[in-house]
Design a binder for these strands. Sequence first.
DNA 1: TATTAACCGAGACGGTACGTCCGGTCTTGGA
DNA 2: TCCAAGACCGGACGTACCGTCTCGGTTAATA
Lengths: 195, 195, 195, 195
Amino acid sequence: MTLPRAPRGRPRDSRAHQAILTAAAELVAELGYAATSIGAVAARAGVGKDTVYRRWSGKAELVYEAVFTGTEAAPVPDTGSLPGDLTALLEELVQEFSAPAAAAALPGLLADFAASPELQARIRSEFLAPAKAGLVELFERAVQRGEVDPGLPVDLVLDTLAGAIFFHVGLVGEQPSPRLATQLAALVGRGIESR
Amino acid sequence: MTLPRAPRGRPRDSRAHQAILTAAAELVAELGYAATSIGAVAARAGVGKDTVYRRWSGKAELVYEAVFTGTEAAPVPDTGSLPGDLTALLEELVQEFSAPAAAAALPGLLADFAASPELQARIRSEFLAPAKAGLVELFERAVQRGEVDPGLPVDLVLDTLAGAIFFHVGLVGEQPSPRLATQLAALVGRGIESR
Amino acid sequence: MTLPRAPRGRPRDSRAHQAILTAAAELVAELGYAATSIGAVAARAGVGKDTVYRRWSGKAELVYEAVFTGTEAAPVPDTGSLPGDLTALLEELVQEFSAPAAAAALPGLLADFAASPELQARIRSEFLAPAKAGLVELFERAVQRGEVDPGLPVDLVLDTLAGAIFFHVGLVGEQPSPRLATQLAALVGRGIESR
Amino acid sequence: MTLPRAPRGRPRDSRAHQAILTAAAELVAELGYAATSIGAVAARAGVGKDTVYRRWSGKAELVYEAVFTGTEAAPVPDTGSLPGDLTALLEELVQEFSAPAAAAALPGLLADFAASPELQARIRSEFLAPAKAGLVELFERAVQRGEVDPGLPVDLVLDTLAGAIFFHVGLVGEQPSPRLATQLAALVGRGIESR
DNA sequence: TATTAACCGAGACGGTACGTCCGGTCTTGGA
DNA sequence: TCCAAGACCGGACGTACCGTCTCGGTTAATA
């Protein structure tokens, strides 16, 4: 157990914290991920570079938190049918991935995460694990309704959904078609339904 | 018509060209994409930096050619059935994406390509367009056999297949399961077959 | 009035400052001015290149300070006679110009200074102006003793003395004859004395 | 003995020779010595770089010939008196040194010559030796007229005259005062006359 | 109330890579 | 053998960031 470690000295300034996140999200949206530097984020936030490094280990962690942690974890959709649930889930995912800052950050972010085992583990546990849990819940209900068979390769389905959207958003660079979620839900939904 | 533009002056040395590509592929496999610098590639190839910049505009273009252009364009599979064709196609794709240098390069490469409109266009026309053409051919045969309906969203299927594999390879960082191609072919194959 | 401009942030490291100057002087003496690069100076000083560029705008300014600013401004000689004063002044000047680092640096330094209006102004105000002031003082005493007439072209005399020594040292490249100062003092001294 | 070595193959193109010299003089006058590169000279002359290197060993030799060899060796002045001869000689020297291309080239040229023993020797033998010969001739006449004593340190006088003008032209960067030659002739003339 | 520890902004630190430029050489096809 | 063109290797340039460190100064909780 880690003791709570009663904090001594001056406590961290939460306004600085927020200012850094805001500055990071803005700069990523304006300049892109690669052209966003820690120094520039600190300068825009009116903060020293150390104040950034004291809280985040690097650009990837900072931008990840700035861009993807604002989103409230939406409840797992429950529309009563697998296609409906999938469509709802994907619409959410599409929306999250195609927000300006997110779309600008995603490819670079993924590259930095992929290059570091520690970050890879973090992304798996903090981003993919909850998503997988939601997907599992959704599938369990579909199994009970007889729509899919148990034993689905959930990881594969998750990689497929996320990968499809990422590839589309990352390599097109424009707002994704509004039908993307529907089409993808249909494609994958039929791919996994029982027969 | 593009004029042949009679070449003048000393022609470019094809051994230098090849040495650079080899050095780039090796360094990416050894150090990863981010830690590979143009200067280091030039040094290992025994070449001046200018000789690299004369041929490629930057790291992304160079590594892309070094890692993905060696592969011979395999013929579109024709096994007689949609699932067979898809599986064959995906096995090829999985193999190409999970070669050591390719797996090490992919995330960073995709990030750099996504960050530049010019490179984005190149990847679309040189990598995705041929793949789409192959997929179209494959689907046309499946339509004639009655396995799928005409009017498939081929782009979406392509993004789905490539995205799924990329996401899997990029975020796991290990050799992909040998069943990946089969499972994905089954998933997507069933998703698009006519009924 | 220049505001004191309260310094903020980490102060500059005076050991780095000194190490750079020492390294620059050594390299100029060893390799010559042209073969001395900022990068090599930084490396020998154990310092990043930025640390050099933060203090000096280029090689000329750095080497000038490294080679000519160590010298204490010697007091204007006062031997009681014009020939004595001139000889003493010139012996000092010869000694300063023919120190190994100075002799190696002078021609290149002069070339770089001559090529830039800003540097030209600096050399005029920081090097020539004090020398001229000393010469004026020396001449004023000689005028009072009746040795020279007032209204001497001091600038011309200064250019003549410095130019003669520079030309000799720069184009011979060896230790100047010990009689150089004496001979030159005699030549110019007689040239300006009143009759 | 070196044989005349009957030339074989295509003879050198003398128009190229002249075009290179002209281009070099122009570029030095326009951009200064340091900013003039062999490549740029070749390009402006419409010539390959090798054609330059085939005739000159480097920038210093080329610019020296381009800037200082056009001048016809003026005859040694013979006005009948030492002051007159000196003034005439110096007016010529001032004019030669302060021509636009010469003034722009001199400091850099001197630096490159000083940095190389071979070039130093060339400048001594090709530039200073003839000048010294002229000075000797001039002084011999003055000795016969009883104006100066034999045994003058001719080298020192030459360094003084040339150094004074060089220092003045190089560090002022403007057209020298028209009185420069007169003043300097008076100064040095009185310095060496017999009494 | 005084001490102390962690915070803060600023900016210098040693390093590394960038992409450009030039030097001097070499290699084409053609004159 | 020369020529124009231009590629070759090497190396310096000056800039930008990285992540760390060092200032003077601030802000609480502890003693």
